[in-house]
């Protein structure tokens, strides 16, 4: 099984002709993801040449792309000014899983996008996220395919490269992953930790979960309470930003300690209070996961 993306993923790439979009389309195709369509307004009728990995038809709109190809998943590489519209276009076209890679979407745009997507029954991952990768099955987004390995550990994180670091440690130790999910570093995101934990709980191929959080907000604390209440699978956790000064935005728009709320200490404490083993450093993941598997 795995969660969110799998062998039945039929992917459409929004912004396929852009610099990032074309580079990552190639990478996703080489990984074996079924990329069935691309969308760039004005370039309908052309096709994306993925070399040995094949070619992908390009459409002017999501509506046509979905109708012609039966795509069920979308990944968005369009610039921040147009990204909110791209997400809503995907939801309106009937896509059920939408991954927004774009960084820098105004938060007020997201306050309108979120209910729009939800009312159409779709799930949004991100924005400002690296996507989702189910090793050996499908890669949607920008996570490097060479650092993962098939296995039974679910990984969910607010970060990009820190996720790679942890996944790489696991892979080097011979511990594989069911799905690696980056939920994104923005204050308003479509899928939170609890959504991913729920999905991992329901996935028979996931035996344990690694949860990587950071300062800012209360998503980790709420997830910790959820773990204690509803999760039968063991969870180990990490929080980045123990040395972050309050009131400063640490790169991610959502990584900010407001007043005295959202500190790393508070989050690590809530992990400990809810039976989540806390990693003191990223490399601790191997020992802790071995201990619970």
């Amino acid at each position: 099984m795995a969660i969110f993306v799998d062998r039945d993923t039929r992917l459409v790439v929004q912004g396929i002709t852009g610099r990032d979009g074309s580079f990552h389309t190639q990478q996703m195709m080489e990984y074996g993801t079924r990329v069935v369509a691309g969308v760039t307004p004005g370039k309908g009728g052309q096709s994306f040449d993925g070399g040995a990995a094949g070619s992908v038809p390009i459409f002017d709109s999501m509506d046509t792309a979905v109708r012609e190809t039966g795509a069920n998943t979308a990944v968005i590489y369009v610039p921040p000014a147009f990204a909110a519209d791209a997400v809503m276009e995907a939801a309106e076209a009937g896509i059920t899983f939408i991954v927004a890679i774009t960084e820098g979407i105004p938060v007020l745009d997201m306050t309108r996008v979120y209910p729009y997507v939800k009312e159409r029954g779709a799930r949004l991952l991100g924005p400002n996220c690296p996507g989702a990768l189910s090793p050996g099955r499908a890669k949607v987004g920008i996570m490097p395919g060479q650092i993962v390995r098939e296995g039974n550990v679910g990984v969910v994180s607010r970060s990009g490269t820190l996720t790679y670091e942890v996944v790489y440690q696991l892979t080097q130790a011979g511990i594989g992953q069911s799905t690696c999910v980056g939920i994104g570093g923005d204050p308003i995101i479509g899928t939170n930790f609890i959504d991913c934990l729920e999905a991992f709980e329901a996935d028979p191929e996931t035996a344990a979960v690694v949860m990587i959080g950071e300062i800012g907000g209360t998503d980790e604390q709420e997830a910790a309470a959820y773990v204690k209440q509803s999760l039968s699978k063991p969870v180990v956790g990490f929080i980045a930003g123990q040395t972050a000064p309050p009131g400063r935005r640490m790169g991610h728009a959502g990584a900010i300690i407001s007043g005295s709320a959202g500190t790393a200490e508070e989050k690590m404490q809530s992990f400990e209070d809810n039976a989540i083993q806390v990693m003191k450093r990223p490399s601790d993941v191997v020992e802790l996961i071995r201990g619970v598997l």
């Binding site: 990009g160 490269t161 980045a240 930003g241 040395t243 790169g251 990223p282």
Partner: peptide
């Protein structure tokens, strides 16, 4: 560092080993 999460984790690890970022 490349990436915000990894940058924060690097600062934390500096502190973990007794240094100051």
């Amino acid at each position: 560092v490349n990436g915000a999460g990894l940058a924060m984790a690097t600062m934390d690890l500096i502190k973990f080993y007794g240094g100051e970022p």
